[in-house]
């Protein structure tokens, strides 16, 4: 009852206007990029503005709606430009980073959560501390190790190892926190029924930790998908670029191909959006951890 009375008292229209404006502010940059991508041109501007513009012409220049619609930027970024190859690099790197990172994080987090061993606290602490420094700090040592020592410059494998390693601390913390909420009695019941440690991990703990695994995987995928600095450092051959490095290539020193950049950005964001939508149900339950109850 109290609820509906409040509904009546709160005027809807101004609220909606306010929320609409707030949304507009948030998505405006995105709309701008979309307009450029579909404009079929390479300039940053949405519309041509004469040297002595009228108010309406100025207004037109900031309305994110292309003067004419064209998918030319998308087709040529995928065909004339090696962008497809770069996206493929990114896909391979991100997928394997996620698989490797999640596998190692899950097993490590489970050990941290369930077993007592020397170095357990120190291990968790060092993971935490490693998160306190900006990632660039490790750029030089990583470069020396990966490129100079292991010779894994310009290699997807190298990128996968680097990304997996850098994502593990966060993932382990995340997963350990979730594993801690899974009642120990479930495992004890399974032990009595004759389950081995492996069976318990694969058939009881992991299925129950699905939400946490899902967000951790998403995190892992997104960091490697979006990462620029390390990729730009390790991948200096053009056909080994990842998508973010490739995007930068379009608007680098000599070229100003904003149209390709915009189209590429949109292509790059599609997998992330799809993943988000797909994992949505887990995101909700994963963030309200502790939901595993007999």
């Amino acid at each position: 009852m109290a609820r509906s009375r409040r509904d009546q008292e709160l005027p809807h229209a101004p609220l909606h206007v306010f929320l609409g404006l707030a949304t507009l502010v948030t998505v405006y940059p995105v709309l701008w990029v979309v307009s450029i991508a579909f404009s079929g041109r390479q300039t940053l501007a949405i519309a041509d503005v004469p040297s002595d513009p009228t108010f309406l012409q100025r207004l037109r220049a900031v309305v994110p709606w292309p003067q004419q619609w064209s998918t030319a930027n998308f087709t040529s970024v995928m065909t004339d430009q090696p962008f497809g190859r770069w996206v493929l690099n990114s896909v391979v790197v991100a997928i394997f980073t996620t698989l490797l990172g999640i596998f190692l994080s899950c097993t490590a987090a489970y050990a941290f959560s369930r077993f007592k061993f020397p170095g357990r606290r120190a291990g968790m602490m060092s993971f935490l501390i490693s998160q306190m420094f900006p990632g660039v700090l490790t750029l030089i040592p990583l470069y020396i190790i990966m490129v100079q020592v292991l010779g894994l410059g310009n290699s997807r494998l190298g990128m996968i190892i680097v990304y997996a390693a850098t994502s593990i601390p966060f993932s382990v913390w995340m997963l350990k926190g979730y594993f801690d909420t899974i009642p120990k009695e479930l495992e004890e019941a399974a032990i009595i029924e004759g389950a081995s440690a492996g069976t318990i991990f694969w058939r009881i703990v992991l299925p129950l930790a699905k939400p946490a695994v899902a967000i951790t995987a998403l995190f892992s995928f997104m960091t490697s998908w979006n990462e620029f600095i390390l990729a730009a450092t390790f991948m200096d051959k053009e056909d080994m670029y990842t998508a973010p490095v490739g995007l930068r290539f379009f608007v680098g020193g000599f070229s100003q191909q904003w149209g390709y950049f915009a189209a590429g950005s949109i292509i790059v964001s599609i997998p992330v959006v799809v993943l988000f939508l797909y994992l949505q149900k887990y995101l909700v339950s994963g963030l309200t951890a502790g939901s595993v109850k007999g």
């Binding site: 009695e185 479930l186 004890e188 389950a195 007999g294």
Partner: peptide, 24 residues
């Protein structure tokens, strides 16, 4: 053993709970 918290596997059906040990 029967636990205070029942310790049923939440992601399995009742039948699967009963069968878990036998399958092993």
């Amino acid at each position: 053993m029967v636990f205070q918290s029942y310790a049923l596997y939440p992601h399995m059906s009742v039948r699967e709970n009963l069968e878990f040990g036998m399958k092993l």
